[in-house]
Write a protein that binds this DNA or RNA. Structure first.
Lengths: 230, 230
DNA sequence: CTGTCTCCGTACGTTTCCGTACTGAGAAAG
DNA sequence: CTTTCTCAGTACGGAAACGTACGGAGACAG
């Protein structure tokens, strides 16, 4: 047994990890790769290592917004834990990198075989639900600056370096705002010296300051993670 | 075995329902009663019959917003299904009425005893997650009129009559907007003849029209419910 | 029946963000 | 090296919703 880079796996009891490890396949995932398409069967469950995935709610062709971010702290494929095999949402790779994946049929059988494993992973479901709820709260009550700060912090939590590779355009889609609004807001961040913006990337310079900007719109799911997993 | 008014219970396989029924206590719940307080142990799981509960995300003392509505189609206490006993959110009675409840420790044991029951209820978790996600989407991208239409439809789905007892003030808190904005919007609804507004209540007159106003911000979790439960 | 309280209608100036769109700068392709 | 393409910065008028606040109308208690 290796010490896993995925924190959810790293926190599993030895017995459950052993059970799962036989089925884990390492895979490199490129940006924009679709991991789950709306209302299609979920083929694999992914445990990100350096990769980061976005979960996006879509309706019609127009309206879309990110509801959650999954990186080395968690897993994709929540519906498989919920006795289901599909989701109305879309999940794709936001930051390329490595992950471990399990064929979801096999995964399903493992869950049935080990209630302990199932429960352990359901706890992450609880964390992720808190994240979606926090997104709903931020979308409804926060200013763009706060929401952007929150997003940068969440991405930062899931990267090894302090650099997040992301265009304003993409970020705008995630937050459900205009591309130009993101540009203006990020410009403000840079002038305050809390980030460095390059073409297609953002570097975190002063994390504490960003946390202050996000206020209490950041932190609830993170606290849940500490409480339930780590 | 009675045919239950709670649709989630009504859809349970006979064996699981029998198991559960021994523990179900009927209870009448008054408006504003707190069912789950943030970060406190959840004592009971509620299956609403005529009652409707709101799940609200809070942070600090100021910022709060409704993330979900639970009525006769579901249950409260999702964290108990997720191997947890608390939640950062707040759950309280929005529309008074009857419910069945189970002591959560007993409930926990039943889930361990019957994986089939557990899975069945987890499916509702999947539906509820879709509802939170849809709320996040609506909060980020919809106009107030659409969000209000969505809320009325969701409340209407969970009431027997066409009347929802609710002040503008309360509705404003739920949607995270000004009380005055709600008044103006509801006024518009009434002038279009889709609702009738009385002091402290809203009566649905033309549901189809309200559905058109909500557009695709309404319907995704409802479809999930049909697919997974009914 | 009168006073009090809750709830609703309305108003006005202000903030935030939108829609649209033009321009320049950096990166990639020929 | 030049063309092409993607990405970022900036601008301007407009819509949506905000904060605040005043007054009236229905409900309820004394």
């Amino acid at each position: 047994m290796t010490k896993h880079r995925n924190r959810l796996l790293a926190a599993l009891p030895a017995a459950d990890l052993n059970l799962l490890e036989a089925y884990l396949q390492p895979i490199q995932l490129e940006k924009r790769r679709v991991l789950e398409a709306p209302n299609r069967t979920i083929d694999y469950v992914y445990f990100p290592e350096t990769m980061i995935a976005s979960v996006v709610a879509v309706c019609g062709r127009e309206e879309r917004i990110e509801i959650g971010l999954i990186g080395c702290e968690g897993m994709t494929g929540m519906p498989v834990l919920m006795d289901d095999q599909r989701t109305p949402h879309s999940t794709y790779v936001q930051v390329e990198g490595e992950a471990l994946r399990v064929e979801s049929e096999a995964f399903r059988k493992l869950l049935a075989q080990s209630p302990s494993l199932h429960n352990r992973l359901l706890r992450f479901g609880q964390v992720f639900t808190a994240q979606i709820a926090q997104t709903a709260l931020a979308n409804g009550r926060a200013k763009l600056e706060q929401r952007l700060a929150r997003w940068i912090l969440m991405a930062h939590d899931r990267t090894v370096a302090d650099v997040v590779t992301m265009t304003h355009e993409f970020l705008a889609v995630m937050l459900g705002v205009r591309r130009a609004s993101v540009t203006v807001a990020l410009d403000g961040f840079e002038k305050k010296g809390v980030i460095e913006a390059r073409r297609g990337s953002i570097t975190v310079v002063d994390r504490k300051a960003i946390e202050r900007m996000a206020g209490h719109f950041y932190g609830v799911p993170e606290a849940e993670f500490k409480r339930l997993i780590a």
